[in-house]
Every structure is written in structure tokens, then in C-alpha cells.
Simulated scan of single mutants.
Amino acid sequence: MSKSQDTVPALRRAVRILDMVKASSRPPLAADVARQLDLPRSTVHGLLAVMVELGLLEKNASQGYRLGTRLLDWAGDVTEKRDLVTEFYHVLENRADLDAFTVTLTMLEGAEVVYVACRNSATALGASFRVGMRLPAIFTATGNAMLAGMDDTSFREWLALNPVSTWSEPLTPNGICSVTTLVREIAEIRDRGYAVDDEQVHEGLWCFAASVRDHSGQTVAGIGISLPQTELSRFTVAQLGNMAAGLAQAVSIRLGYRGERQDFS
């Protein structure tokens, strides 16, 4: 084993313990863990105590150990994200009318959106989108769509956690740079049902987006369709906005959302 691989032996031992507990037919005792993993009992007792404290393991009445609920929380979060991406691509399979657009799926993380899925069009956009990319939320259509999808209390909390003094410099001359402008934009998005990035991320690039809701009605993502400014004349703003809103609604329905449905045809 290389030196770099052996810098966190406690973490490696903890993972080995989790694997063993998961594979055991009955909750193993501390002595079982020490014997099967060939570890000192003092080391095992210390690790088990910390893992129980952190919710990674639980101790039953017989002093045996089983996986803790914190792991279930993590697994659930991973599953939800995977389901979201799966349903995004499933809906796109039946939307040949969107082949000419770059279609993206983002999630809100603090003041940024992170791109979790993307289907690029063959049309040159002048900008590239890729999974894992991050951008300031206030400049993106998907970010503003998700902010508009919050209730007023949650939106105020977001503003308090991300004050204007922490905002990134605008990426183009069109970028939002004041709370007043953002609040006005959010109100307009709520009124029309979709968000518009009018060259805020990249000059010559437009994006139309709407928020995705889960079974509880919570906004969990934003879906955007992007096209170069030179292609805008082929559509009306309402047509493009309704395309994005219809796509977001289709994914929301597949996630179990049963709220008010609208006709975006």
C-alpha cells in the first residue's frame, strides 16, 4: 500500500466495519468485529463508539451492531437524485421537438446551480454545458426558476443566507446585480410560469426554464432549454417558455407531483 493510500487508516477500518455489518446474518458483537477483521479490540471499541455517536451504526439490546439511520438518509438522497436524472432522460426520449435545443437539468446548492444532467443539441451555442458544472444561480434561468418556486419565507431565508455582498460579478452586462432586480424577476417568473436567461450567462445565448417539483410539491430542480440568439426569430418567447414549463411539468408528474396541471401546448 502506498503512503498516500494509508493516510486515513481509521476511515478505511470504519468502511470495513460497515461492510462487515451489512454482510452479517445477525448483528455482530464488538468481539466478532475485532476477530473477523483482525483488529485490536481497543481500536474496534473506539471506532464503534464514534460510529454509533454519528448515527452510522446502531446498537441493539443484545449489544450487537446494525447499520444506522444516517446511512439511510444518505442513500435516500442519492436515490432521489438518481431518480430525478432517470426521469429527465426518460421524458426527453419522447420529445423529438426538443432535439434542436440543449436541454439541462440543475439543482440549487446555496448560491449556485449544479448541472446534474444535460443533452446537448447539434447546434453551436457558443457555450458548453456539462454535468458537474456550476454557475451563480441568479444569472441562470434554471436558478431563478427554482428561486421562484420557493415560498416567500424560503426565498427570504435564501436571500439572508446569500446577501448581495457575496454575489458574483455579472458574467455579462445583462446579469442581475441587485436584490430589487432579482425580486422583480422572481415576481415575473411566478406570474408567467417560466424564467428567461436573456444572455446573462453568455452573450448570444438564451435559456428558458421552469422548476421541477417532487411528490410533496417541493421544488427540487430546474429544467432549461437553451438556444443561440440567432435562432430566436423562429419562435415566440411564450412558445419557448411553455416548452420549458411543459417539460418540467412532465418530469414533475413522473416524480409523483399531483398538483395543479397546466396546458402548455
Rank of each mutant, 00 (worst) to 15 (best):
E112T: 05
Y89T: 02
T166K: 10
S178K: 00
S168W: 03
W158L: 03
I186E: 10
S128N: 13
A145S: 10
G132L: 03
L147P: 00
A187P: 00
E112N: 11
N174T: 08
R119N: 08
W158I: 02
A160P: 00
G143P: 02
L147M: 04
W167G: 09
L105F: 11
S165K: 12
T180K: 12
S154C: 08
D99R: 09
T172A: 02
M133D: 14
G110V: 03
G149C: 04
V78K: 14
D77F: 02
G126D: 06
T166V: 09
L67S: 09
S165F: 00
E93N: 12
T181M: 13
V179G: 01
D151P: 10
C118S: 10
E80A: 15
N144C: 13
D83M: 12
A111V: 02
D83K: 13
A141W: 01
D152G: 01
A137W: 09
Q63F: 10
E188Y: 02
W158E: 05
I189L: 04
I189Y: 06
D73P: 00
A127Q: 12
T123N: 09
F101I: 11
N174M: 13
L159P: 03
G76T: 09
V183G: 00
I176P: 05
A137N: 08
R130C: 04
G175Y: 04
P173V: 10
E188Q: 12
N120I: 01
R66V: 09
E80F: 14
T86V: 09
T166A: 13
K81S: 14
W158Y: 10
Y115Q: 14
P170W: 02
L98N: 04
T104A: 11
M107A: 08
L135W: 04
L171N: 04
L84S: 02
G76H: 11
A96I: 03
R66N: 09
T86F: 10
S121A: 15
C177H: 15
R82K: 12
I138R: 10
P163W: 01
E188A: 14
A100P: 00
R184M: 01
L56E: 09
N174S: 13
T142W: 06
I189F: 07
L105Q: 12
D99M: 04
A75R: 14
E112M: 02
G149H: 05
N174P: 00
P173M: 05
L92S: 04
H90M: 03
Y89M: 05
